[in-house]
């Protein structure tokens, strides 16, 4: 059974469309983890017909993903897809990923914006922020990925059981590759399309992630 897990925080504008899009592509098991939204995210999800589980207080994207993983594992998920609530990803990429995973017997697939030319990454982000992030990330995770902090992931049951996300905030994007390395999971990247709206993490978000990673090292 394929489950789509979507962490959502104040996404009432876009979440409904994302869910309907997934349904139209034949993905019927859609679980949204509402991360303590203060808007109508929950209602939108219920109206769209997806399952919602909700954090009473906001805990961050990493925490929401782990809650989602726990839930779908309990409900017999064999394949879990992490997907964004804001419609940045292309639903069509999921099937390609699942197919690739099964054909190549992979445990986890990471989405990457840089393996084809579909994603129009903003200039500053592409040539300044991301290269620096990549160096830092590869240092922390010890595995080489062409993209960093891309929320698109597909994992099998085994990977989801091994990967326990402890980073509440955005640093989970670095934590997951590190755990993949640690547990020797078979991974690969998949070209995915990312549409750019005006949101996203700027440079300060990057520093917050670095800070969280360093803290985690101290706290070990």
């Amino acid at each position: 059974m394929i489950f789509i897990v979507i962490p959502a925080y104040n996404e009432e504008q876009r979440i409904g469309r994302v869910i309907r899009d997934l349904f139209e592509h034949g993905f019927s098991n859609v679980v949204v983890v509402d991360d303590g939204s203060s808007d109508n995210t929950v209602k939108e999800v219920v109206d769209a017909g997806a399952v919602v589980i909700n954090h009473l207080v906001n805990r961050g994207q990493g925490a929401a993903l782990q809650t989602g993983n726990d839930f779908v594992l309990k409900n017999g998920a064999e394949i879990i897809v992490h997907f964004d609530a804001d419609g940045q990803f292309n639903v069509a990429d999921i099937s390609c990923g699942v197919k690739k995973m099964q054909e190549e017997n992979l445990d986890i697939i990471f989405g990457s914006r840089f393996l084809d030319t579909r994603s129009k990454v903003p200039f500053f982000k592409k040539y300044f922020i991301l290269p620096i992030s990549r160096i830092i990330n590869n240092h922390f995770t010890k595995i080489k990925l062409s993209d960093v902090h891309n929320g698109f992931r597909i994992m099998n049951r085994k990977a989801a059981q091994k990967i326990i996300i402890t980073q509440n905030q955005m640093a989970h994007n670095s934590e997951i590759p590190r755990l993949v390395k640690e547990h020797e999971l078979k991974y690969d990247e998949l070209p995915v399309e990312v549409l750019y709206f005006e949101n996203g993490q700027g440079v300060s978000g990057g520093f917050k992630i670095l800070w969280d990673l360093l803290l985690a090292k101290i706290n070990k």
């Binding site: 303590g36 589980i53 909700n54 207080v57 809650t67 409900n75």
Partner: peptide
């Protein structure tokens, strides 16, 4: 928060 969310989640049906 996670435990509470999972406890309150309705039984999943396809």
């Amino acid at each position: 928060t996670r435990q509470d969310a999972l406890d309150r989640a309705q039984k999943y049906e396809n």
